[in-house]
């Protein structure tokens, strides 16, 4: 989900760039050099996940999974998403330099919000975990669509219909992302629970097998 080059006004581009820089700075501060490899390779996994197309009726959509990334990484989602967007820009020319900041905010701000709003319930069992995982996956898309619509709306009030259409298009995507995040969190809880930071029941050293 991103806005292409050429749409946004100076004010929106600059505020997007500023917010992205601030979020990235916080994210980088919380990553120390021992976690760089984790963050970098999760960025490639996030990038590859965005190439996964799932069918919906006769069409298909690609996954975004910024909600899942937020649950896994918290503030580190900012630099990770920024890196993944740079990969997309250089490999496929999806977006360019001026919109890099806005597009980072569109995906990473919801990821951080989901981390704090839905994350705490991920460690629970049963329906609470499932509901919060679904809400995290779906909510991150809703928020991203809203931020994207806001960027268009603040550029020009008359973009309203275009922005509303763009939000409407994301409704089925929201449901699918919610379902996939739900199953994915369930899978990770069984297979590698220490990946989910809210899920640490025992101290992680006792699970570490080197």
């Amino acid at each position: 989900m991103h806005i292409s080059e050429g749409y946004l006004s100076a004010a929106v581009l600059i505020s997007g760039g500023g917010l992205a820089a601030a979020g990235t700075a916080i994210g980088l501060k919380r990553l120390d050099y021992d976690q760089i490899a984790q963050a970098g390779i999760l960025a490639s996994a996030f990038f590859v996940a965005s190439l996964v197309h799932v069918p919906i009726g006769p069409a298909n959509i690609h996954l975004i999974l910024n909600g899942l990334l937020g649950l896994l990484l918290g503030w580190a989602a900012f630099p990770v998403i920024l890196a993944a967007l740079l990969l997309q820009a250089v490999f496929f020319q999806y977006g360019g330099i001026t919109t890099l900041g806005v597009n980072t905010v569109i995906m990473a701000a919801p990821a951080v919000a989901v981390h704090y709003l839905c994350g705490p319930w991920i460690g629970r069992n049963g329906w609470r975990c499932m509901a919060s995982a679904f809400a995290g996956g779906a909510g991150a898309i809703v928020l991203a669509a809203v931020v994207m619509a806001a960027a268009l709306y603040f550029t020009d009030k008359q973009f309203f219909t275009v922005a509303a259409t763009a939000v409407a298009i994301h409704v089925p995507i929201m449901v699918i992302e919610g379902v996939i995040t739900l199953f994915c969190v369930g899978f990770l809880k069984k297979v590698k629970p220490e990946l989910l930071p809210h899920n640490v029941v025992q101290p992680p050293q006792s699970r570490e097998v080197v």
């Binding site: 990235t24 980088l28 990553l31 050099y33 760089i36 490899a37 963050a39 970098g40 390779i41 960025a43 490639s44 990038f47 630099p79 990770v80 920024l82 890196a83 993944a84 740079l86 990969l87």
Partner: peptide, 9 residues
């Protein structure tokens, strides 16, 4: 750090 993250990604 950001550059290393990018290069590893």
């Amino acid at each position: 750090k950001l550059v290393q993250l990018l290069l590893l990604a």
